[in-house]
Computed example of a mutant assay.
Amino acid sequence: MRARKPQLKPERPWFSSGPSAKRPGWDPGDLKGAFVGRSHRHPEGRARLREVIARSAQVLGLPPDYRLAVVPGSDTGAMETAMWNLLGHTAVDVCCWESFGYTWLTDVAEQLGLPEVTVHLADYGHLPDLRRVDFGHDVVFPWNGTTSGVRVPDAEWIPQVRDGLTLCDASSAVFGMDVDFTKLDAVTWSWQKALGGEGAHGMLALSPAAVERLAAYRPDRPVPELFRIAREGHLLDDVFDGFFINSPSMLAVEDVLTSLDWCERIGGLPEMLARSRRNLEAVAAWVVDHPYVRFLAADPATVSSTSICLTFTHPVLDGLPRQERSRFTTRLCERVEAEGAGYDIEGHREAPPGVRIWGGPTVDTDDIALLLPWIDWAFAETLGEYG
């Protein structure tokens, strides 16, 4: 197998799945008006945090009766805030089909030590049988499996009326996929995914049912200060009104505001979703023409348009142990990176060996189209090392 070395390279060769690529046209000079060297609790600092909350809710079309907050710790902090405050009132179902689902399962079963936990498992590339999920229980799941490239196809499997709460890690889905917030009671994401923002800051949206749970239920465990959003049966309203629990980076706040500016300027959420969809379409057309590569997601309806995960199939590779297949993939990705044609495209360490291309809305389709021939070339060159 031979492939000619490409001549053209992506203009922006950043394809990491987190932190993801900055928005097109981003420049550090855009942050010159940041409220730095000042207290975020000053009225102007708090106004900027309020602006992030209000504009995020508006762009995403969050239901008007949902509450939204900026919280510490990126998406991880937001999910743990939701779980530490809300879970334990009833039994819990946890859906796992990739590494982050298993992370939340560890929190639920081991860290929180909840006694009634039902687990719905699937191997990488597949979804569990969502028909078996009991919505009389609280349900914890990711909308999109960032490390597997497998997403739920829609929210039809979630009933509109349910006794339990749905807690959804949507970090690699919001702004890049059509997420039905009306089916979700606690929704989390970070700035560093589809908006290309900086790390360490998370967002937590709560439905009226989740707010009601906070008033009715007091966990029989200590809740760390960083996770505390309720006290003595009352929601801490300030947290949902621009009061950050610890000290946020006002540079990061300014950065995400410029990303929201860009989002609104290009046409809002519809164009963000369309950009991500076009990125997936470019990769899908390439996969059709290249028999040595396939989506990790087995069902086309579940292929992620943001964390696009691919695996290689070839007679030489199919007989190799996993460790050697991982070395092959690492070598391939190193070749692409050494040419400056694509950075951070190797799949997650816990996933089957392959590549992962971030296809969220801050990535241009033209850049993905220019990356793919470099993967062809690197595949052929690396395969040649195996005789």
Rank of each mutant, 00 (worst) to 15 (best):
V71G: 00
A57F: 08
L86Y: 05
F141T: 08
G45I: 01
G113S: 04
L251I: 08
G136T: 14
P43M: 01
D289Q: 13
V140T: 00
Y343Q: 12
P373Q: 03
W104F: 06
D138V: 00
A252Y: 00
T329P: 00
W84R: 10
T76C: 03
D134F: 07
A209F: 13
L332I: 06
R55W: 07
P142F: 04
K183N: 09
C95F: 10
L62V: 08
M203S: 02
E98S: 13
G267N: 02
G340H: 05
L214G: 03
V117F: 01
E334K: 06
L371G: 00
R277K: 05
G18H: 04
L112E: 09
D366I: 04
A200F: 13
P352G: 06
D238T: 05
F227M: 13
L320S: 01
I345Y: 03
Y66R: 10
F227G: 01
I266E: 07
I245C: 07
M79L: 12
D237L: 15
D129H: 14
V316N: 00
L236E: 11
S171C: 11
S249F: 07
D261K: 02
A91V: 04
V71L: 09
E381F: 04
W84L: 11
P159M: 01
T146V: 13
P222F: 14
P19A: 08
H314C: 06
F227N: 08
T76W: 10
H40K: 02
P64H: 12
D185P: 03
C333F: 09
A209E: 11
E254F: 00
L383F: 06
I345C: 01
R55D: 04
L317N: 07
E80H: 15
T362L: 03
R131E: 12
G101W: 03
N246W: 11
K193V: 09
D344C: 15
K193W: 10
M250H: 02
D376A: 05
S99C: 10
E11Q: 10
P13N: 06
S247D: 13
A205F: 06
G233P: 10
T103H: 14
G145T: 05
P224S: 07
I245K: 14
D255K: 14
S20L: 05
V70K: 08
V70Q: 04
G196V: 03
T106V: 12
M203R: 07
E11K: 03
V140Y: 00
L167I: 13
A282D: 00
E51Y: 12
R41S: 08
A109R: 08
L167H: 03
R265G: 15
R218Y: 15
K32Q: 09
V36K: 08
R12F: 15
G145S: 09
P208M: 02
L165W: 06
T103I: 13
D75R: 09
R132L: 15
W191H: 12
V174D: 01
